[in-house]
Design a protein around this nucleic acid. Structure first.
Length: 577
RNA sequence: CGGGGUGUAGCGCAGUUUGGUAGCGCGUUUGGUUCGGGACCAAAAGGUCGCUGGUUCAAAUCCAGUCACCCCGACCA
């Protein structure tokens, strides 16, 4: 490729509206151009990167027995009605009608399509197990796209679906896919990726992992145990606390607490620690606005997804009206109308005594509140956020650490959710009808590209790993207006290209500053600088984008040196070739 | 969907308070001088000032509505 002919320009200034580095660099470098909120055109450099990522994914999926297919983007709503998701999924599923008025959907994920294919193709146990996958454009009408390719509405995704006759077989395959994912991220040069336990969300099923790139700009919150290595999305992490030191025999007492409406104020006023208070958080159900009040220990916070799961309904932050009978700031368990209000007690209150809680009466709290003694037996739920330094739900040590991550891939054990709802059955060895069990496995291709950029860049541009770099080598010709540098540059370009090195040559007659700045934005890991200064001695300069290598090479030995460096850079990422 | 912000040339912005010929930097085109980290000089091209309506002799500027985009939150395989 000649930079003089490459479509798209590179910008000196940081574009407005770019708040994260990978987004800014990919716009500045001429990788992406926004068309709409969360909708981008990929220019050649980005497309070359995603092609390479897709190739790695294909190799690894094929290596675990995957068979590539291509499902339709537009699917009949009937399939989604079968699975129940036509109504259960929110507005992120785009629904439309065709000219005959038939309901259609844009496929945001393809479990239904996979079952549609597989239920006719796998009626005998002898066909199992098998995995089918595709790499395809998805459209999800996200409520809020952001961050360039990190979170978009239209994107390319690899989605895979496996079918099994036993749970054990699914689990064994799940492990193979887990290992394949680790290889994919390693080969793509995405270094700091970990697998965490996840909440299965709308996908259904039980066991699920998300592959997370650890980064401060990540949208997901992760809980990691420094003691035992437990890793989970905070949505899936049990909040464990130790209340044994807080129990006592204090009497239930109504005390005036004028104007003390927050935990901070009440605890200060009564000279109690925050973890000896009972906090109330008000939500409302989305469907009928019914109140949900959750009680938890005063030093903790609610995790809404966990509360949503506990309540079993969609909820939103509640607004307390005078008619509700709820006394904001003084809400407590004692005397609440549980016929009208759904009450959820967090596990952090279990076994605790001598609590301070609201009295459901303005300017009053109780002290000495003991749930079991004063209120009665309750079923506790886990609805609090895990906290830094908190107790690990697996090893029991207070060694939890909180980090942020970008979800670059996920794997789910779906179970029979879709095969049952869509009536997919096979005949087993005994001639009996059985439902197969499923797994599904996703990777966002563009998000992975942006994640690598986010992880590996400097102030001048991306530091692409050679495995996915848009070009492996870039020839920077300084003084392309002069005969000799121009000729040598062209000769090297021809030689490298012929030798299978993906090369882009900057053959423009622009100043050295422009040549180097734009080369940094393009981020080819190998750089050859051809200049009159070096050619005086018959040399060219061979460098790596990250500056680890910087040496003068005789022109005649350049090709061999580049091939050696290329092999070395590949080996660093993929191991011995 | 709630809160905040922004829409003026390909990109970054000024001009809006106080209505009066649409500007600056980068980029682009042409000519010349430079030449190893975003050079310099000269000339030039490029804009329905997001859109609609209103007020006015006159609207980028004032008023009303509307659309789009960005950020925070909600939401999210």
């Amino acid at each position: 490729m000649r930079l003089s002919e490459l479509i798209g320009e590179r910008y000196k200034e940081k574009p407005a509206d770019c708040t994260i580095e990978s987004h800014a660099l990919m716009v500045r470098g001429g990788y992406i151009k926004q068309v709409n909120t969360g909708v981008y055109t990929l220019l050649p450099p980005a497309r070359r990167i995603t092609h390479k990522i897709e190739r790695i994914i294909r190799e690894e999926m094929d290596a675990i027995g995957g068979q590539e297919v291509l499902f339709p983007v537009v699917l009949p709503a009937d399939l989604w009605k079968e699975s129940g998701r036509f109504t259960s999924v929110g507005k992120e599923l785009v629904r439309l009608t065709d000219r005959m008025g038939a309901d259609m959907v844009l496929g945001m994920t393809h479990e239904e399509a996979a079952v549609h294919l597989a239920r006719d193709a796998a009626k005998s146990y002898a066909k199992y197990p098998f995995m089918i996958y595709q790499i395809q454009t998805k459209f999800r009408d996200e409520p809020r796209a952001r961050g360039g390719l990190i979170r978009v509405r239209e994107f390319t995704m690899k989605d895979a679906y496996s079918f099994h006759t036993t749970q054990a077989d699914l689990e064994a395959y799940y492990e193979r896919c887990y290992a394949a994912y680790e290889r994919i991220f390693k080969r793509a040069g995405c270094k700091n990726v970990i697998a965490v336990l996840s909440d299965s969300g709308m996908m259904g099923g039980k066991i699920a992992h998300e592959f997370m790139l650890l980064t401060d700009i990540g949208e997901d919150t992760l809980v990691l145990c420094d003691n035992c290595g437990y890793k989970a999305n905070i949505e899936a992490c049990a909040s464990v606390v130790d209340n044994t030191s807080l129990s006592d025999t204090e009497e239930l007492t109504l005390v005036p607490t004028p104007g003390m409406a927050t935990i901070e104020e009440v605890a200060g006023f009564l000279k109690k620690p925050h973890n000896a208070t009972c906090k109330a958080v008000v939500y409302q159900k989305n469907d009928d606005d019914g109140y949900v009040i959750s009680f938890l220990r005063g030093d903790l916070e609610i995790h809404e997804t966990k509360l949503r799961n506990a309540v079993g309904a969609e909820i939103h932050a509640g607004s307390v009206t005078p008619e509700s009978g709820i006394v904001a700031g003084f809400i407590g368990p004692m005397g609440l109308d549980t016929k009208k209000i759904t009450v959820v007690f967090d596990r952090s209150l279990e076994g605790i005594g001598a609590l301070v809680c609201g009295a459901n009466k303005a300017d009053h709290h109780y002290t000495g509140f003991n749930i079991e003694r004063d209120y009665g037996k309750v079923a506790y739920a886990d609805v609090a956020r895990a906290i830094p330094g908190g107790i690990c739900p697996v090893c029991g040590k207070p060694a939890l650490r909180i980090e942020n991550g970008i979800e670059v891939g996920n794997i789910f054990q779906l179970g029979e959710k879709y095969t049952r709802s869509m009536d997919m059955q096979y005949l087993d060895e005994n001639g009996a009808l059985q439902y197969p069990t499923m797994g599904c496995y996703g990777i966002g291709v563009g998000r992975l590209a942006a994640s690598v950029c986010e992880e590996s860049h400097d102030e001048y541009g991306p530091l692409w790993p050679i495995t996915i770099a848009p070009w492996e080598a870039q020839i920077c010709v300084l003084r392309a207006d002069q005969e000799e540098p121009k000729r040598v540059g062209e000769e090297l370009y021809a030689a490298l290209t012929k030798a299978g090195v993906e090369t882009i040559i900057d053959d423009r007659t622009v100043s050295a500053g422009v040549v180097f700045s734009e080369a940094d934005l393009i981020g080819a890991p190998i750089r050859l600088t051809v200049s009159p200064r070096n050619l005086v001695n018959g040399m060219v300069e061979l460098t790596t984008r990250d500056k680890r290598v910087k040496k003068q090479i005789p022109v005649s030995e350049t090709l061999a040196a580049v091939l050696e460096l290329k092999a070395q850079l590949f080996a660093e990422i993929e191991g011995v070739l």
